[in-house]
């Protein structure tokens, strides 16, 4: 079974952006998209920052995802720029909720997805080490991000198995549905975490030893460009 979404690519060239720049980008986009208003300069900033993931996705050659994302965001931004401003009352509430669900959650997710697309676990761990984040935080974080697609895959398998045994046809209640899907996924979680820790043990991973690595991590010109852009957005956002 192929995994449609994959976090943390496993091999290949050096990352497009330094992981530290990417994390900063996620934070900035999050701040601007969640807290920004829909008028004046903040609206312009919102438009710019929600297009950063699209540009990055094009840069890493994920054309399909990038185009879909770009079109959706364009549509939402136009709605926010026009329809939300000109309507009142219940209709306004409807537009705000509809566009808000997308514009306030999706860009950070997409930035995170970009980050995962071009970053290796190794690069992530090294850059966290450079920021002096202790490994008791770094290891769970990297496991966690790597584990999201696994959960989706396991969940799909469980649903498929339920279909095969025709347990899903009876329309179970919400609580039952939760139990039927959650319990097997949790079982798998426990098992996978055991397997992962055995794998880590065979690789000699320890908490107190320094990790050696061969991947190159550091700031390059594109990182500085990105940092300046993000810094400008953040400063403008705070001032206005």
């Amino acid at each position: 079974m192929d995994v449609s979404i994959q976090t943390f690519k496993t091999s290949g060239e050096r990352a497009l952006l330094d992981p530290r720049t990417s994390i900063f980008a996620i934070v900035v986009i999050g701040v601007v998209m969640v807290g920004g208003s829909l008028t004046g300069i903040e609206y312009v900033l919102r438009v710019i920052s929600c297009m950063i993931p699209a540009a990055l996705l094009y840069a890493v050659k994920k054309y399909k995802v990038a185009t879909i994302y770009f079109l959706i965001m364009l549509f939402i931004m136009i709605i926010e720029g026009t329809a939300v401003q000109s309507t009142v009352g219940a209709l306004n509430l409807l537009f705000v909720i509809l566009s808000g669900v997308v514009s306030r959650f999706i860009p950070q997710f997409m930035m995170g997805y970009c980050f995962m697309c071009y970053t290796k676990v190794s690069e992530f761990v090294v850059s966290m080490e450079r920021m002096h984040v202790p490994s008791v935080i770094t290891i769970p974080l990297s496991v966690m991000f790597r584990f999201f697609p696994t959960i989706a895959e396991e969940n799909r398998c469980v649903i498929e198995a339920m279909k095969m045994r025709r347990t899903g046809t009876k329309k179970p209640s919400l609580l039952q549905k939760m139990e039927y899907e959650l319990v097997p996924v949790m079982m798998q979680t426990v098992r996978i975490s055991d397997e992962l820790s055995q794998a880590a043990m065979t690789k000699g991973m320890g908490l107190n030893r320094k990790r050696s690595h061969i991947c190159k991590v550091g700031f390059r010109a594109i990182d500085y460009l990105m940092l300046i852009l993000l810094g400008t957005i953040l400063v403008l956002f705070i001032i206005y």
Binding site: I97, V143, M144, F147, L207
Partner: peptide, 29 residues
Amino acid sequence: LTVKDCINIGVFAALYIVIFFVTSFIGYI
């Protein structure tokens, strides 16, 4: 703390966050 514990934390944090987000979509109303 061992590496095994760290991995357990990561795995369960992922599960927790997924469930948290599925539930919290009702928060927009």
